[in-house]
């Protein structure tokens, strides 16, 4: 167990050489690789931190935007609901009014229909009654009745008031035409002459006369000159009576309507 000093020196040299070799081939490359990796990881971590911070910032912004959006959405929804309710109310009101209006129209229409029906029935009845009357009077007409009619007609011309006579004269003079005389029956020569005399007397001149037969006049005579008409017939009475009846028939539903109104 001796120390070989040459070996000691050789081993010292060997060891120093080994230190150099391992530094060159082991420590430096390994430590360099570790440093690079650590730098890389540190870079990644820094990058991740930056991204994290950015993400957090974006998250906060997003949350704020989301909140704003929610508020806006809620506001819009509230407005929309309010508008919808308002519109619904309006539509309901409008529909209700329309329904009332339609109901009113329907009621009026029904009443009108009822009135029309009543009126038609009354008119029909009236027409039938007058038709029967006319027929009866026409059937009853005879010589003496005709003569009587002419004499009444002449008497009426004679009895005309001054103003009426004046109107008649003016109407005749305005357009000097012939005078048309219509009668329900054929007038006898004497009767024609009587009428001519009376009329000429009023006019104060000789004029042309045209005599025509019109059975619808019913025992009547009609004198027409330039729009002026002078007539007498049972038909006139009947027409007058028919008019009066018709007016009373028309007035009746109104009275009924007033009467049917609830108190």
């Amino acid at each position: 167990m001796q120390i070989n000093w040459f070996t000691v020196i050789a081993q010292i040299i060997n060891f120093i050489f080994l230190v150099w070799l391992l530094k060159r081939f082991l420590y430096k490359p390994i430590l360099k690789a570790i440093d690079e990796r650590e730098n890389k990881i540190a870079g990644h971590i820094k990058d991740a931190e930056v991204k994290d911070a950015k993400a957090k910032k974006e998250q906060i912004e997003f949350a704020a935007k989301n909140e704003t959006f929610e508020k806006e959405k809620k506001g819009l929804m509230d407005n929309a609901i309010a508008e919808t309710n308002e519109k619904r109310q309006k539509l309901l009101e409008s529909a209700r009014n329309e329904a009332i209006e339609l109901q009113s129209k329907l009621e009026n229409s029904l009443k009108e229909m009822e009135e029309n029906l009543n009126r038609d029935m009354a008119q029909k009845t009236q027409q039938e009654v007058f038709a029967i009357t006319r027929k009866t009077l026409a059937d009853l007409a005879n010589q003496s009745l005709e003569e009587q009619s002419v004499s009444i007609f002449i008497q009426r011309i004679v009895d005309l008031k001054k103003e009426e006579k004046k109107k008649f004269v003016e109407a005749f003079k305005k357009k000097s035409n012939s005078i048309l005389v219509q009668s329900a029956f054929d007038l006898a020569k004497k009767q024609q002459a009587d009428i001519k005399n009376v009329v000429n007397e009023i006019l104060g001149l000789e004029t042309q006369f045209q005599f025509k037969t019109a059975p619808e006049l019913i025992c009547g005579i009609e004198l027409t000159s330039n729009g002026f008409k002078l007539a007498w017939s049972i038909s006139d009475y009947l027409n007058s009576f028919q008019k009066s009846i018709a007016e009373s028939v028309r007035a009746e539903p109104i009275e009924e309507q007033h009467a049917s109104k609830p108190i």
């Binding site: 080994l18 391992l22 990881i41």
Partner: peptide
């Protein structure tokens, strides 16, 4: 000693020849 040195240096050189800095 030389043999051990040789082994160490060769092993170190072989391993550190293709060092990677990734994960």
């Amino acid at each position: 000693t030389w043999a051990v040195m040789l082994v160490l240096v060769i092993a170190a050189a072989l391993v550190t020849r293709n060092l990677k800095t990734g994960i």
